[in-house]
């Protein structure tokens, strides 16, 4: 694998409620509440299978969500992952 490997806490450490297209997440380790819009919940769901780099994330999203396999999707996913990282929901290593 190349590039950073991302991981997320087990889904059991998150309390999730859907509300009109948005996802409210209570993250137990941090005690913080996040209001997430797509594709953040999908990224967390994909990471539930285990750590992954960007290429692996794209593969998982294609399988789970019929993601269009066209090029240029990696930077978008990397940017969203970075946001989740800043929020403490995703970390590297």
């Amino acid at each position: 694998m190349t590039g950073p490997v991302y991981r997320a806490d087990s889904p059991a450490l998150r309390l999730t409620i859907e509300l009109e297209g948005l996802t409210l997440v209570y993250h137990r380790p941090s005690g913080t509440t996040h209001v997430l819009g797509p594709p953040a919940p999908e990224l967390l769901a994909a990471l539930a299978e285990g750590p992954a780099d960007i290429a692996e994330m794209v593969r998982r999203l294609q399988r789970l969500h019929d993601l269009d396999g066209g090029g240029g999707i990696e930077p978008v996913i990397a940017a969203r992952l970075e946001e989740l990282e800043a929020a403490g929901l995703v970390h590297r290593g």
Partner: peptide
């Protein structure tokens, strides 16, 4: 809300729903 932690989240999402 923040200091109640999970109890606060459950209470408030319950109220809103």
């Amino acid at each position: 809300y923040v200091s109640l932690g999970e109890a606060g989240f459950r209470a408030l999402t319950g109220l809103v729903a």
